[in-house]
């Protein structure tokens, strides 16, 4: 093989994309930039508020500092109530979400109708924000922790149920086949063949959702559904920023603790 033949056979230039593909990629970038610019223009943002934002932020911070530490004594009770709302809401979630997850997974649902019902419940639960669920349950139960518990549960069922249903759909089919081959009943197949395979996901998802629910339940008080949010809302409305900062620090504290608990539990699941 001569040098020229070799160079033709084994060229030194190789490009990942053809010129046409490169053009299409640039067109996508341009499209995204255009949509962003268009959205910004349609929102009609009052830019003059934007100009002094840094001085406003500095002003707010100066009102928050120093925090009124004596306020902690009053915060402790509602803070614990917030954690209780999250925990009880998560317990209800587990009881409701598990059966729905088995309905919503294609490989465990009895028929197309039950699958549709399962999926519908999950989508309905997730499409409404926790605070909006709060408004609904305050109307039903009246203001207080009960409304908070049910709004946490109502939103979490969709989250937990969807993740568990997806895990059920990805289980090893061979194990299920082996349990079926022993003559086990349908429920026994779920119990021995399916649940052990998804148990790590069940535990992990529940703890993760509990962690999220603690954060969500801190704002439920804004709509009267119990917890620390009621006081937070009141202090903000009274411009009592040194109280607000105490509550933000307290919330930050329990969120750190719940994150730690959640991460530890999920790390230990095998």
């Amino acid at each position: 093989m001569t040098r020229e033949q070799h160079a033709r056979r084994y060229p030194e230039v190789w490009r990942r994309f053809t010129p046409k593909e490169t053009l299409i990629r640039y067109l996508w970038f341009a499209a995204v930039a255009f949509i962003a610019a268009w959205s910004l223009q349609r929102l009609e943002i009052p830019w003059f508020y934007f100009l002094d934002a840094h001085t406003q932020a500095g002003d707010l911070l100066s009102r928050m500092v120093p925090p009124y530490w004596g306020f902690f004594a009053e915060v402790a009770g509602p803070l614990i109530e917030t954690v209780h709302i999250a925990t009880l809401g998560t317990v209800i979630t587990v009881l409701v979400a598990l059966p729905i997850a088995f309905l919503a997974a294609r490989n465990t649902t009895p028929n197309a109708l039950t699958w549709f019902i399962g999926r519908f419940l999950l989508v309905a639960s997730r499409s409404v924000n926790t605070v909006v669920w709060g408004l609904i349950f305050v109307a039903i139960f009246g203001p207080g922790a009960m409304a908070g518990i049910w709004s946490i549960a109502a939103r979490s069922v969709g989250f937990v149920g969807k993740l568990i249903a997806e895990a059920i759909e990805e289980i090893d089919r061979g194990t299920v086949e082996a349990v079926e081959a022993t003559g086990a009943s349908r429920l026994q197949v779920l119990l021995i063949g399916v649940i052990p395979q998804v148990l790590p996901v069940i535990y992990g998802t529940i703890v993760y959702r509990w962690d999220i629910n603690i954060r969500e339940s801190t704002v439920l008080g804004f709509v009267g559904a119990g917890g620390i949010g009621i006081m937070l809302y009141a202090s903000i409305n009274q411009f009592a920023w040194h109280e607000v900062s105490v509550m933000l620090i307290a919330i930050f504290g329990i969120v750190v603790v719940s994150e730690f608990v959640s991460a530890t539990v999920r790390g230990r699941i095998t």
Binding site: D172, T175, P196, L199
Partner: peptide, 8 residues
């Protein structure tokens, strides 16, 4: 593939 229940 044995098809045991792995976590049991």
């Amino acid at each position: 593939e044995y098809n045991l229940v792995e976590r049991l």
